[in-house]
Structure formats: C-alpha cells, structure tokens
C-alpha cells in the first residue's frame, strides 16, 4: 500500500515540477506548482511528518500560491515569446539538469550511509505530531523560531515598501511636510529626509531671492552641506 501511494505521489510531484517549467503561460505554471505541492505534502505524510504536511497544504498551497495567482493576474501573465531562446540554449539547460542529477545520484548511491537502504528508525507514536514539533520549537529551537518571525516581519514591511503605488523616494511635497515627530525632536538630527534634502534643510526665506522655489533651494544647499 505504501509503495503504491509513494509511486503515485512521486509521479504526481515530478509531473507537477515538469509542468512548472514546461508550460508557456505562467498562470498554468502556478497551477502545476499547486499540484506539485499537494503531492509533496502526501510524500511528507508517508514520511510521518504530519505537521509539516498540514503546514505545506495550508500555508504553501493555500496562502503563498494565492499570492502568486494574484500577481500573475495583475501582471497579466505575459507569454514568453521565446524567439531569441535558441534550441541550443534549451538543450544546454536540459544537459545541465541531467548532469546535476547524475552528480546527486552518485552522491546518494555512493554514500556510505547504511541506513539509506532501510525504512528508517522504528516509528514511535506521536512522531511528527504538532505536539512534538511545538514542544521543540518552544524549547530547543526557540531562537530560530523567533528569528523566523522577525524575518517574516521584515519581509512583510519590505514587500509593502517595494510594491507601493510610487516606488522610490518621496515627492518634494511629502519631504517638506511636517509630521508629529518633527516637533518632538531638535531641528538637525541627521534623519534620512534631511540627507536627501528634505525638511529642515535650511530653506531660504521666501522673498530672499528671486529663485526661492524649493527645488532651487535643494540644489543650492547640496554643495555647502
């Protein structure tokens, strides 16, 4: 029974992987990846990793793939024209993949690990259950757990910053606008807005010169800074 299930899911996973790289339309590639991930979750179940399999289906095939689908439908899923991609280049990539697989297969077959030919350690009840994983995450692996949460936080902020409506620096109006923080700190404290010539850069008094526009003030103040 386990063998049948293994071969079915392994074929499903490999077919999904081939579909990801072979399909022309990125939207279908994403769908192939969803099929691949679900087959992989079944393989994880065969390896008695219940919690990881559940997380794979819920987090990966659920949340992350929905993000992909949104972006593909937003960007438009442009099909690759492929006219500049020569046949030789494609053959070279296939040859590279085959060579890499040969190296890995030699590594697997030639390794001295005797346990590779067995089914692994005897199964104990509760192996891979959320209870065991949670206990480890909050005791032995507390630091990686916290670092991972921090990394997720940084990635979320970074994604929002990158994909804002207007990338890059603020406009001149925003740079000169006052926020609540500006009244709570001294004038020149070396903030980033000051570094790029924003607020609190010493502006010429309106009417001091004929060219007292903000843009001219920025250009004038840069050499003196």
């Amino acid at each position: 029974m386990a063998e049948v299930l293994f071969f079915l899911t392994a074929i499903g996973a490999i077919t999904g992987a081939v579909g990801v790289i072979a399909l022309r339309n990125p939207f279908y590639s994403v769908l192939a990846l969803v099929a691949h991930l679900i087959s992989l979750a079944l393989l994880f179940l065969l390896l008695r990793a219940e919690f990881v399999a559940a997380a794979q289906v819920i987090v990966y095939a659920g949340a992350v793939m929905v993000l992909y689908v949104f972006v593909v439908s937003y960007v438009g899923g442009t099909q690759e024209s492929g006219h500049r991609l020569t046949k030789g280049f494609k053959l070279a990539s296939v040859a590279f993949g085959a060579a890499l697989f040969a190296v890995l297969a030699i590594a697997i077959l030639g390794s001295g690990l005797q346990a590779l030919d067995t089914e692994g350690a005897p199964y104990q009840a509760g192996f891979g259950s959320p209870r065991e994983i949670g206990k480890l995450l909050l005791t032995d692996f507390l630091l990686p757990f916290e670092v991972a949460s921090f990394l997720l936080h940084i990635a979320a902020v970074g994604a929002v910053t990158l994909a804002r409506r207007r990338g890059g620096l603020e406009t001149q109006g925003e740079l000169n606008a006052y926020t609540a923080l500006d009244f709570a700190r001294p004038a020149i404290t070396g903030t980033m807005a000051e570094a790029v010539g924003g607020r609190h850069q010493r502006m010429p008094e309106p009417g001091a010169g004929a060219d007292a526009s903000p843009a001219a003030a920025i250009v004038d103040s840069e050499p003196s800074a």
Binding site: E80, L100, L116
Partner: peptide, 27 residues
C-alpha cells in the same frame, strides 16, 4: 526506503535548476 525519497528529491531539484536557467520570466 529512504533512498527513494532522496532520488525523487534530487530529480525535483534538478528540474527546478534547469527551469531557473531556461526560463526568462521572473515569475
């Protein structure tokens, strides 16, 4: 056997590596 799972893993890794080289769409 664990061998089988490792072989499937190696195959999927190589398919992914070949895809990174041959495709041009960043998605």
């Amino acid at each position: 056997n664990v061998n089988w799972f490792l072989t499937v893993s190696a195959l999927i890794f190589c398919i992914g590596a070949g895809g990174v080289i041959s495709r041009r769409n960043p998605l």
